[in-house]
Amino acid sequence: MLTFGVIGCGSIGGFLARLLTREDAELAGRARLAAVVGRDPVRAAALAAEVGCAATDVAGLLARRDVDAVLVCTPSGTHAELAEAALRAGKHVLVEKPVDVTPQAADRLIAVARETGRTLGVVSQHRFDPAARLARTAIESGRLGRVTSVMTELSWWRGPSYYASGTWRGTRALDGGGALMNQAIHAVDLVQWLAGPVVEVAAHTARLAHPGIEVEDVATASLRFANGALGTLLASTAAYPGRTARTAVNGDRGSVVIDDDKLAYLHLAAEGEDAPAYGAFGAADQSAAYAAELTGEGARDASGLLYQPHRDQLLDFCEAVREGRPPLVDGAGGRQAVAVVTAIYTSARTGLPQRVDRAVPANDGRTQKSP
């Protein structure tokens, strides 16, 4: 059993506090919530009363001997500082995305995790979506053949009230960026988990619909992956009224499309199969045949978020601590997404293609147990 404390009582902190305290057969006996911390004591007290735990401050939380792990759910640019303090206090740490707003901050945090021997993870729950897991299995097994292209599109809308809901939103210092760093970081992580690391980008960014913020509300990028595949990325919070996020991975023997976190199209070529010379034009969809493997969506929180992906990531984190292994999304994985976003920003600023900084300190997270 891991006992958690949550730092941050905003939308995601509140969601995770509710997840840890709801009746869930999978989490029962594996994770519980002891306390929450918020910058606003009134808001923290209200959340604590709602979920039935204590409200305290950061120092009080880190001093609690019954707290094994800390969930950091504060503004992005504060993640590394708070996570480092928690690691040095002997706590395991799961950081809300992004791990921080620069690769250098991520490097420092990874080094502290290695030094303290504590487990470090980064929330990237879409790796735990059933459709993403199925796509990963198909790609890893070679059923798509050689991956040739990747397209990911996040065409969302964020109104003025969203940016006004926190003084840190839309700022370079604490948000680290806009539609790309805050919203599309999930897509950047997912495409690299599916298709391998991005090694080079060429990009543009713009602020077109939200003049009151410091950062971009539209970003486009051309991506080159380590395996030779090419890709495109669109990230926007200026696409009124907002559409679903969509990712497609295409290979020379199959293709997969995930739309709104659900499997929208899948075709895996059978042995000896040949498509028509001019292609199938979207026909030959096999996704219905995999419906039995895509269960688990289940309940949603009052915020609209699904419980299942976050719950499964929490379970993986608890098992990682117990087994002495890195979690599925470790510090290095979180850093990799931030490094791609940073390269995109540099390319947009300079007008030049940029190589992605992939340097990561060795032995990220806890030292693994011998087999």
Rank of each mutant, 00 (worst) to 15 (best):
G60P: 07
I12T: 11
R136E: 15
P326N: 03
A221N: 02
V188R: 07
V150E: 13
G52D: 05
V70W: 08
A138D: 10
A269S: 08
V122S: 08
A348L: 01
S165N: 05
R22K: 14
V6T: 06
A44M: 11
R133D: 00
S141F: 04
D66L: 06
D259Q: 12
V95A: 12
W168S: 15
D129Q: 11
G242L: 03
D357H: 00
N182V: 14
Y240K: 13
M151I: 13
A277N: 00
V215C: 12
V101L: 08
R243S: 14
L62Q: 01
A34R: 05
A59F: 07
E323F: 09
E81C: 08
A292T: 13
V99K: 02
S255Q: 13
V150A: 02
A59Q: 13
W193M: 08
Y345T: 00
A239L: 00
G90H: 07
T167W: 14
T205H: 01
G254V: 09
L94K: 01
V72T: 09
V112R: 03
K91E: 04
V36G: 04
L234S: 04
A277D: 11
V329Q: 05
V6F: 10
E214K: 01
A28T: 12
V356S: 07
F225C: 05
E273D: 04
P160L: 06
G251M: 04
D189N: 13
P327N: 00
V218S: 00
S347K: 05
A299Y: 06
A348F: 11
V257W: 03
G365R: 05
L314P: 00
R246K: 08
D100T: 13
V6L: 08
A195V: 11
T148L: 15
G60M: 00
